[in-house]
Design a binder for these strands. Structure first.
Lengths: 119, 119
DNA sequence: TGAACACATGAGCAAGTATTCATATGAATG
DNA sequence: CATTCATATGAATACTTGCTCATGTGTTCA
């Protein structure tokens, strides 16, 4: 089961360091989920949406007005954010109000901003 | 200068909420830099590289061996990470050793992992 | 019930991206 | 100085993605 120590053909200089690194790697699934999460955050439109929702819940056409984008474009992006469990929504009559569904995203933004400011 | 209150044509329901959100938006440049940072983190190969470098500095062929990928592919990814100021390097003879150049990335990973675990 | 409104969704396209392949650079070694 | 080794880089390609356009779904209201 844990015998995934299959050597790949790549030439390696420091066996011990590579071996230690291998033992500390994240599980494949976690890496995939992490990269998908970051991929979702890696888009200006979605960042703007999340930042806006951090202040207030909003319906789709409000977000579209805020960002000067089409309703369809916003709707597609909200779908992506919904799939990533970053936003939730509630229906009220004809409108659907979106809001944040995560307490970690803001921390991630802040860390990102720190990284950028620090050059 | 700050008169970028140009109304876009999109129909908007809640003027006050949109207006408040607009006042609290991140600056355009910051959104771009943030999205570029997250984009860099949004790739499994680069996540694996960063995680490995968090344990030890490593030369290119070691990373290639660890991840069972070509030297060229790793080199291209390291370039991306270097441009994002996430890794630094030093030369020692024929080898070039890469290491982390940021203290925030690990926090971002941890926040990401928390988000994922929390469903 | 049917028109109007808010939103979702599928197809299509232009732009971006991760890898491979071939080749270039740069340091050590004989 | 020529060869070898470690790494970088440019071009090409398969794949992904964000938007638009057209249309579908679900709710309200007359």
């Amino acid at each position: 089961m844990d015998k995934d120590l299959q050597r790949c053909d790549a030439y390696c200089i420091h066996e011990d360091i590579v071996s230690t690194a291998r033992d500390n790697m994240l599980h494949e699934d976690m890496v995939m989920e992490l990269s998908e999460l970051f991929k979702v955050l890696g888009d200006g439109t979605r960042i703007n949406i999340l930042r806006a929702l951090a202040i207030n819940e909003m319906c789709v056409c409000d977000i579209a007005a805020l960002l000067c984008m089409s309703q369809s474009a916003i709707s597609h992006q909200l779908r992506t954010l919904k799939n990533a469990r970053l936003v939730k929504f509630r229906r009220d009559g004809k409108n659907i109000y979106y809001s944040l569904d995560d307490e970690h995203v803001e921390h991630m933004f802040n860390q990102g901003i720190e990284h950028i400011k620090h050059r």
